[in-house]
Measured scan of single mutants.
Amino acid sequence: GIDPFTGEAIAKFNFNGDTQVEMSFRKGERITLLRQVDENWYEGRIPGTSRQGIFPITYVDVIKRPL
């Protein structure tokens, strides 16, 4: 089901994660935001896939912030 505490964002740019914990994505992908890790990073996942990880806040347009 849908978790009411998650947020939502759209990727503004392609992001290629450097490490296992970073999640790569392509511009235009819809991302579920799980939490804000710190002032620069979100943790999120791509709905319908097993992809999950952290990524820079500046790479996405936030539609709804996670609670």
Rank of each mutant, 00 (worst) to 15 (best):
T58Y: 11
P47F: 10
P66H: 07
G44H: 00
P4C: 15
G28M: 03
G7S: 09
G48A: 06
V62R: 05
E39A: 12
G53D: 01
P66L: 07
V37C: 09
W41N: 07
F5H: 15
E43S: 07
S24T: 08
Y42R: 01
K64G: 05
N16I: 14
G17Q: 04
Y59Q: 06
A9Y: 05
L67A: 15
I63H: 06
V37Y: 08
D18F: 13
T49P: 02
W41D: 02
E43F: 14
R51E: 02
E8V: 13
I10G: 01
E39Q: 10
G7Q: 09
L33A: 03
F15P: 00
G17L: 03
P47Y: 09
V60P: 00
Q20E: 15
L34A: 03
M23G: 00
R30F: 12
S24H: 05
Y59N: 04
G7V: 09
I54W: 07
D18H: 15
T19H: 11
A9E: 00
Y42L: 10
N40M: 13
Y59K: 07
I10K: 05
P47D: 14
N40Q: 12
R26N: 09
K27M: 09
G53C: 02
F5I: 09
E8Y: 14
A11L: 01
G7M: 10
K27T: 09
Q20D: 14
G44F: 01
A9R: 02
E29W: 04
T19G: 12
G17Y: 02
F55C: 01
Y42T: 03
T32R: 08
E22W: 06
R26S: 12
F5D: 12
Q52I: 09
I63A: 05
I57V: 12
D18P: 08
R45H: 10
L67R: 13
L33R: 02
G7N: 09
Y59H: 12
I54F: 10
I63V: 10
D61W: 15
N14Q: 07
L67P: 15
S50Y: 10
V60L: 05
R45L: 11
I31V: 05
F55E: 00
G48I: 02
Q20I: 14
A9H: 02
G28E: 03
A11G: 08
F15N: 02
R30N: 06
G17K: 04
T58M: 13
K27V: 12
I46V: 10
I10C: 07
K12E: 03
P56F: 02
R30I: 12
G1Q: 12
L34V: 09
I10V: 12
N14G: 06
R30A: 07
E22H: 13
E8A: 09
I10N: 03
F13Y: 13
R51Y: 03
I54M: 09
E43V: 08
G28Q: 03
I46S: 01
V21H: 14
Y42C: 07
R26Y: 10
V21I: 12
I63W: 06
R45C: 14
K64A: 06
S24K: 05
I63D: 04
N14V: 05
S50P: 10
R65E: 15
I57Y: 05
V60H: 00
L67H: 15
A9W: 05
V60G: 02
R26A: 11
L34Q: 05
E29M: 04
V37E: 02
V21G: 15
T6H: 14
Y42H: 03
Q52E: 08
R45E: 08
F25P: 01
L34M: 09
D38M: 07
L34N: 04
I63E: 05
T58S: 14
F5S: 11
P4R: 12
V60F: 02
G48E: 07
L34F: 06
G17H: 03
T49H: 03
I57G: 09
E8S: 11
L67K: 12
G1E: 14
D61N: 11
F25M: 04
R51Q: 04
N40A: 11
D38E: 07
G7I: 09
Q36P: 07
P56A: 02
A11R: 00
T19R: 14
P4K: 13
K27L: 07
G7C: 15
R35N: 06
I10W: 06
T32F: 08
G7Y: 14
P47M: 10
E22L: 08
G44D: 00
I57P: 04
P4A: 14
D38Q: 06
M23V: 04
R35V: 06
D38N: 12
N40R: 10
E43Y: 15
F15W: 08
I10E: 05
E29A: 04
L67Q: 15
I57K: 11
G1S: 12
Y42K: 00
V62C: 05
A11P: 01
D38P: 02
T32V: 12
I46Q: 01
I31M: 04
I46T: 01
E39Y: 09
G17F: 02
P66S: 07
S50L: 12
S24L: 02
T49F: 03
I10T: 06
I31W: 01
G53S: 01
G53M: 02
E29G: 01
E29S: 02
P4V: 13
Q36N: 05
Y42D: 00
P66Q: 06
D3T: 11
G17D: 03
I46H: 02
G28L: 03
P47E: 14
I2H: 13
F25Y: 01
A11S: 05
F15G: 00
F15L: 02
A9T: 03
I10H: 04
V21M: 14
P4Q: 14
R30M: 10
Y42I: 05
K27S: 08
S24P: 07
G7F: 11
K27Q: 11
G48Y: 08
M23R: 00
E8M: 13
Q20Y: 11
P4D: 15
T58L: 11
L67T: 15
